[in-house]
Amino acid sequence: MTFRRLLQTEFDRRRSANRRYSLRAFARSLSIDHSALSQILRGKRRLTARSVRALAPKLALDAAAVAEHCAAGNDAAVLRAIGRPNFRADSRWLSAMSGIPLDQVNVALQRLLRTGVVVMQSRETWIRTVEAERG
């Protein structure tokens, strides 16, 4: 699960407990701007590893869960970049497109290859076997 989906799930959980619970209230509890939170939930704003780490304590997430969400976010961002029409089989290009540091791009790439989500079919053709999830 990406961190965005985790936020959405947590927001839905709180709303089901209190139908008057608003996005503004959720944003206040996370100490972030409500419009930024809205953009994050709609997939219009990318969550950086730094922001995931900052939000984690407010959602009672431990270090392992944070690492898992950062990895899922990186994988999704790299996967989206691979799907771009102007894709280049180049980790530096992926880094520039995804905003993720080069080493983290390569870690994500290895994970995607290992799980079969990406296949390097030829030196210029990388196949995505699943669609990218919004980060």
Partner: peptide, 26 residues
């Protein structure tokens, strides 16, 4: 290079060269 792979040359015809690749945090 295309992957930004840290290719290492040991500076001698003998032996083999290598490289360094990032490991995931876990």
């Amino acid at each position: 290079n295309a992957l930004g792979y840290r290719a290492v040359e040991t500076g001698n015809g003998r032996g083999i060269n290598g490289g360094v690749w990032p490991s995931p945090p876990e």
